[in-house]
Nucleic acid binder design. Structure first.
Lengths: 124, 124
DNA sequence: CGGGATCCGCATCGATACTG
DNA sequence: CAGTATCGATGCGGATCCCG
C-alpha cells in the first residue's frame, strides 16, 4: 500500500497509527502487559482518563483482538482485562518508542525552548 | 514519572505519545528519513493531508527538534525539510511499529469482523 | 512555491446521572 | 463494580482566500 513513496489513506501504517495514535490505547496496552487488571484498577492507574474514554478504548482494543475481556459472575460483577498474544506483540513493538521517550524527552523539551526563544526574538 | 505502575499525566511516555499519536507526524518522519523533501512534495506524498495540517505539523516537528527547515532564496522561494539526528533516532524507534502494522493488519481486521458478527448476534 | 489568516462545522471528550 | 446514556462545550481540522 506504499506505492512510489506515497502514503495512501488505506496503507497499514496509517490504519494502525490511527489506533496506536490514541494515547490511551497505548498506555492500556503497556499496563495490561504487566498484569491482568480490572476496570477501576485501570482507571486509577491512568491519571486523567474518564470512565467514558476508558470504556470506549477498552471496547475498541477488544474489537481489534488486542485485549481480552473476561466477565466473572461475582456480586457485584468483576471484569478482567488481559492481553491477547496479538496485543502482546504490539506492546513489544511499542517498547522502543517508550524507551526513546524516556531517553530523549529532555532533548525534545530543550529543542522547544530554543525554538520558542528564537520566535520571541523575531517578534521583537 | 511512572511510579507504582501509575501513568501520571506528565510521564515521558505520555508526552511523547501526544506527539507520535499525531498520525501525520509519524508519516512525515518516515518520509523525511528517506529523503529531504519540499512542502508540496510532502503534501502530494501524504494522501489526504490539508496544507494547514501539514504546515502545522511541520512546525511542531521543527519545534521538537526532530526535523530541520531550510529556506533557500530562490524565486519563488524553496523550502527543504530534512531529518535531524534526533528525528532519525525517533524514526528508528517507530520502525518496529510500522513493521508490526504491515505484518498484523489483516489479523486485526479479522478480529474486528469476528467481534462485529458477535455483536450482531447478541442484538438478534 | 510555501505558507498565514479566517471562518466554521462536526466530532471528541468531560461531566453528570443512572443501571444491572 | 462496571459500565451506558445524555448533554454540552471546545477545539481540531477542512475549506477558502490571500500574501511574499
Amino acid at each position: 500500500m506504499r506505492n512510489g513513496n506515497v502514503y495512501a489513506a488505506a496503507c497499514p501504517t496509517r490504519q494502525i497509527l490511527d489506533r496506536v495514535g490514541d494515547k490511551w490505547a497505548v498506555l492500556i496496552l503497556l499496563l495490561l502487559r504487566d498484569d491482568t487488571r480490572r476496570f477501576n484498577q485501570l482507571r486509577r492507574a491512568i491519571e486523567g482518563i474518564s470512565q467514558k474514554m476508558l470504556s470506549q478504548v477498552l471496547k475498541s482494543l477488544e474489537r481489534d483482538g488486542l485485549i481480552r475481556r473476561r466477565v466473572i459472575a461475582t456480586v457485584p460483577v468483576t471484569v478482567e482485562y488481559s492481553m491477547t498474544p496479538l496485543g502482546t506483540t504490539l506492546a513489544a513493538a511499542v517498547d522502543p518508542l517508550r524507551d526513546w521517550a524516556e531517553k530523549n524527552l529532555k532533548d525534545v523539551l530543550a529543542a522547544q525552548r530554543r525554538y520558542d526563544a528564537q520566535q520571541a526574538d523575531k517578534a521583537a
